[in-house]
């Protein structure tokens, strides 16, 4: 599905890289542990995370993750938005829990990696 559909499904707010909203994603991985994210070779991945700091965006950059959903109303800083724009990474902020966000995306056809 397209990243814009991800934003709709989780009722989130797109904060960066709206040039990427038509980009396709297929899988999702939910974790607050960036080392965990860095072990995943899968492409077209959405990262669902409760960790909101500059290393979240750096990790997405290194792992070629084009879409990051930040859950539980965690504050996304301007610095994160800037870095995400530079790297064409869509950050979506949403108020649901990680469990609910994952469930909604799974229900709508986003696949798990394992």
């Amino acid at each position: 599905m397209k990243i814009r559909e991800v934003a709709d499904i989780v009722q989130g707010v797109v904060l960066s890289a709206d040039d990427m909203l038509d980009h396709e994603v297929e899988f999702a991985f939910a974790s607050d542990l960036m080392s965990d994210v860095l072990t995943i070779p899968t492409e077209k991945l959405v990262l669902i995370t409760g960790l909101s700091n500059i290393q979240t965006v750096r990790t997405a950059e290194m792992a070629d993750v084009q879409c990051v959903v930040v859950v539980r109303n965690k504050k996304v800083t301007n610095e994160m938005v800037e870095l995400a724009n530079e790297n064409h990474i869509v950050i979506i902020e949403c108020s649901s829990s990680m469990f609910k966000t994952s469930g909604l995306l799974y229900q709508n056809g986003i696949k798990p990696i394992y």
Partner: peptide, 16 residues
């Protein structure tokens, strides 16, 4: 850990 690291996975992932 607050930065999302510190689970002892870095060196093994580099090796991998």
């Amino acid at each position: 850990r607050e930065m999302g690291f510190g689970a002892g996975m870095g060196l093994p992932n580099i090796q991998h």
